[in-house]
């Protein structure tokens, strides 16, 4: 069962900015500590969002990709000074192994963050966000997304009607079945194109494209959104600053060196961890409020 996700109830701009920043940031810093934090947070949030489905996706899709990335780098990249051994005259270096592991963590984290994005940023939110900047394109998007289930349903209806006149795709010789399948497709395409024109004419009759028409807005940018946005922007700014002054520096080649201790660095770990866990924190806060309200009643 899908749990209710409090972060999804915030204004779409929050979700969009959040994922854009977190994904870019994860791809940019190859700092091991930051990667571990980002990876673990993405994993936790994806499991919160999608439950068992997320575990299956992370194990079956993401893990093999990560293993591939971790193996490919040391196998093809022979830079680095610490030679661990030779495979067919090619040096295997500690640095390239470390780098492969970091790359694997980065790729895994980015893909898991994207799976969270897919769950939170539904197509209607995307269309709401971009409806003003690119009105025609978001109209195309929302119509195409609506046509997909409509066409699937229509194909079933056409197939039933065709069966009624003896063109059954589930029985008979292969060539006859293929021919019935083609005729279903042909009817389908004709119907889709004709009904598209009808839809367009109906839109025009109702004043599509005239001036002064407003769009229905489902989302409201309220105080809660303002607070979270301000908080997020502060965190983003701090991390951008960290990137600018290279305090979270890491070097893999020729020798591995990382700036991983010191007060300033630890401070940025905390900022990064807080940013990565904003969605989960929003969920936990919501659960807490809900429970305390229930216990009072």
């Amino acid at each position: 069962m899908k749990r209710t996700d409090a972060f999804s109830t915030y204004h779409p701009i929050i979700g969009f900015l959040y994922f854009a920043f977190v994904i870019l940031e994860t791809a940019f810093f190859l700092h091991p500590v930051l990667l571990v934090i980002s990876f673990a947070s993405a994993m936790a949030y994806s499991i919160y969002l999608n439950g068992r489905r997320a575990v299956r996706f992370n194990l079956l899709m993401v893990l093999p990709l990560m293993l591939l990335a971790a193996v490919i780098n040391p196998a093809f990249n022979h830079e680095g000074v610490t030679i661990l051994g030779y495979i067919r005259d090619n040096p295997i270096t500690l640095e390239s192994i470390l780098y492969g592991v970091a790359a694997a963590a980065m790729i895994g984290a980015v893909i898991i963050w994207f799976s969270c994005y897919n769950a939170v940023m539904t197509s209607d939110k995307f269309i709401y966000l971009f409806g003003r900047i690119i009105p025609s394109l978001s109209l195309i998007l929302s119509m195409a997304l609506r046509f997909i289930p409509a066409y699937k349903a229509q194909i079933v209806r056409i197939a039933d009607a065709q069966r009624g006149i003896g063109r059954d795709i589930s029985s008979g010789k292969l060539s006859a079945r293929a021919r019935s399948g083609l005729s279903i497709l042909s009817v389908m395409v004709t119907w889709a194109l004709e009904s598209a024109i009808e839809t367009a004419d109906s839109m025009k009759a109702r004043g599509y494209g005239l001036r002064g028409r407003t769009a229905y807005a489902l989302y409201r940018f309220d105080g809660r959104d303002r607070l979270l946005l301000a908080f997020m922007v502060c965190g983003f700014a701090l991390l951008l600053f960290a990137g600018g002054v290279r305090i979270l520096s890491v070097q893999y080649f020729p020798a591995f060196s990382v700036n991983d201790t010191g007060f300033g660095v630890c401070l940025f770990y905390v900022v990064h961890a807080v940013i990565c866990n904003i969605p989960l924190a929003a969920d936990i806060r919501e659960d807490f409020i809900w429970r305390s309200l229930r216990s009072k009643a």
Binding site: A150, Y151, A192, S195, K204
Partner: peptide, 13 residues
């Protein structure tokens, strides 16, 4: 509108 809907319907196809 007609062009938009035609494009949308080709995308959906």
């Amino acid at each position: 509108a007609r062009e938009l809907v035609l494009v949308a319907s080709l995308i959906a196809i």
